[in-house]
Design a protein around this nucleic acid. Sequence first.
DNA 1: GATCATCCATGATAAAAATCATGAAGCCAA
DNA 2: TTGGCTTCATGATTTTTATCATGGATGATC
Lengths: 232, 232
Amino acid sequence: MLSQHRVDCDCIHCLAKNFPFSYLTHDELELLDQNKNIVNYNPGEIIVKQGSSMTHLLSFYSGLAKIYLEGINGHNLILQLIKGSDFFIGPGMYTDFKHHTSIAAITRSTACFVDIHLYLEIMNRNPAFANQSLKAENIKKIDALKKIVSLTQKQMPGRIADALLYLHDNIYGTNPFRIDISRKDLADMTALSKESVIRILKQFRDDEIIDVKGSKIEILDLAAVRHYSEVG
Amino acid sequence: MLSQHRVDCDCIHCLAKNFPFSYLTHDELELLDQNKNIVNYNPGEIIVKQGSSMTHLLSFYSGLAKIYLEGINGHNLILQLIKGSDFFIGPGMYTDFKHHTSIAAITRSTACFVDIHLYLEIMNRNPAFANQSLKAENIKKIDALKKIVSLTQKQMPGRIADALLYLHDNIYGTNPFRIDISRKDLADMTALSKESVIRILKQFRDDEIIDVKGSKIEILDLAAVRHYSEVG
DNA sequence: GATCATCCATGATAAAAATCATGAAGCCAA
DNA sequence: TTGGCTTCATGATTTTTATCATGGATGATC
């Protein structure tokens, strides 16, 4: 049944459009194509495990997955969601060459793996691509700083507002949107307990800021959500 | 009185030893040397202001400073301390070319500024240096991930333990050590209130894990501190 | 369609941490 | 030395959030 996934892709047409791969030459893309490795995943399956060796880089092809930190006492913290056509380089690159986060599929997903040695080779001979990779990494670092502020300086309504805005702006892009993640995942995104998540969602619904029906969420008052996000 | 600071340095002898500058050629170091800009700061003075344009990069020459995020409602969060010979590239590099953190002197400090265009030029023509810069940035990103875990999943004793270990291992390197930062700064490092910091320090002292006399801190039971750091 | 498992929801309670209030101690400057 | 200022310290109280307990809804499986 996994054959329903489309796996016959080539890097020239797939990666060429994506930042930072748009800076690669045709030859370099063909090199990647000959060394790629496509894998399908069912919901819940682990794609990358924190602590394992970083032998390949991940170009996420389709589906939805969560990038998360395995913390203390079994607590996970979801750093970001990743959807079709996102490229992922972990911070273990150039340092200890281990994965410092885990990635798990939320929906059925397809991922494309690129050998890390090939990536390094291309990095060394294509400075423009190296610069753009730096840029991509720094954007993630800015996001991480925002996340630290959100998680340490905002209280529950502000953090839930941030999660709702993230899902709306970055993942689904529609309103209403149907979330594929559980309340537990929302809790792991906001570093709250799942009961607290449910309580704030109920409070937002009672205040007619959002409408929640199961997994379907509609933002009724975007300005109010943004306000909660800003004041904390 | 600022003339007490030594300001007659040259990049060839100063930067050549420091990662990632050890990967630069003699000519490149001379280029830096001709374009450097040395500034002295008194305690409390702002060296880099969050939100300002990133026109120069900072090579911290001597003293002690704090790199912090200006958050919500006047709350600051100290990400790291920076001491002599540390090089600082912010995540605004390659993205919006703005500073996303502020840096303020804690003790009298001297900083050396490098024009960003020059840095970018060297990055483009020296791939080995570019790779090492990536490495330096990724090490900071790993630290940021650890910080997120510390601040979101550990409670007060674990976070204070982390701060004590950071000061001991990374900043002062001696035991006992005399901290230059206030209790308020410790609070900003751990995202706690200053009263809570004082209470945990007192608890650690009562438990004979540390000895605190004003700004002098001695770790009496390093294993206990590490244990608090690990279990949260 | 009954059973089981998982997720969602909600109230009651407990724990964690912030805030408030108040002094004490240290440090300068006049 | 005195007064003023900042930092440090500590107890009382309140706020915030997690945990616990329980029940309902939903969905898959046989």
